[in-house]
Computed example of a mutant assay.
Amino acid sequence: MIKKLRIFLALALVVAGSLVLVPLQVLSMKTGLWPETFILKIWHRMIARALGLRIHVKGALSARRPLLVASNHISWTDIMVLGSRVDVKFIARADMANWPMIGMLSKLQRTVFIERERKRSSGDQASEIARRMANGDAMVLFAEGSTGDGNLLLPFKSTLFGAASIAISEGATEQVFIQPVAIVYTRLHGVPLGRRHRPIAAWIGDEDLMPHLKVLLTRPFAHPGPGAKVENRLFFAAERR
């Protein structure tokens, strides 16, 4: 009963908040009344709160532009973790455009959707990312190309790093800055997450979204341990209450 109540209250918060924030974001995009990420940050924080996530940040987003942010990737919740704290735009796989709520949020944030399996389109996609960076957007690339459980860093997919080279070769900029970002989910029930329990926070491969969402809403995470700060790296620690 308590688990069902928690799920109901979380979904009610997201729906009620979205009814207010979506029109405000559309207005912002059309009029420039606020920076594009202003409303989105509030929205990301609302969803993170509904999921019971507490986010701790070590370091700061680089002020240099053009900027490509290279992050590890554990779950779809990484978007809320990053988007709630820093002014960034995302590079995401194409099928996310049709996801309920997440797809709408992504489109309102002008996410660049990519089709990794279609190599013929990779050049056009990299060019679009290059243009966005040249126009001042800090673009987040989940460089592993897939999600993992957080125990190991998967090999980086080098193709879309080509956006940095394209931005330079097309004369849009003389240099591109690349900033690494580390995301880690740290505790469950007040206990540090070990290797065996990290898959609880992870969303791996072709796992369905709704069962994973249910797990997140019914398994409270708790305070994270301290994260090591590495020079020129952003470190995000997410906990569940």
Rank of each mutant, 00 (worst) to 15 (best):
S127R: 03
R6M: 09
G162I: 09
V69D: 09
A182T: 02
P35H: 15
A134Q: 05
G205T: 13
M104L: 09
Y185C: 03
E170I: 09
L21A: 14
R49W: 06
I55L: 07
D149E: 01
S18M: 01
F113S: 09
A48G: 04
I200T: 08
R187Q: 03
T31I: 08
R195K: 12
M80Q: 02
G145P: 11
P100A: 01
P226S: 10
D124T: 10
G150I: 01
R6Y: 11
V176Q: 01
R195S: 15
G225S: 12
K157Y: 15
I200C: 08
K30S: 09
P23V: 01
G148F: 13
L153E: 06
Q125H: 04
P199W: 14
E174T: 10
K119V: 15
R85G: 02
L217Q: 08
A228G: 07
E117W: 08
T218V: 08
P226V: 12
L213D: 07
L105F: 06
N232G: 08
A202P: 03
A164K: 14
I74M: 04
A138I: 13
L216K: 15
G32H: 09
Q109P: 04
D78W: 10
K3N: 06
K229V: 10
V230F: 08
N135D: 13
D137M: 12
L67R: 01
F142H: 13
E128F: 01
H73W: 08
I47Y: 04
I7L: 05
F177M: 09
F221E: 00
P192A: 10
S169R: 11
I39R: 01
I204S: 06
K107Y: 06
F161G: 10
R45M: 14
E115W: 14
R49N: 02
L217N: 03
D208A: 14
T147S: 04
L234W: 02
R93A: 07
V184K: 05
W203I: 14
T37L: 11
V57M: 13
R120D: 14
S158W: 03
V88I: 15
E144C: 12
I39M: 07
F113Q: 11
S122T: 13
N72H: 12
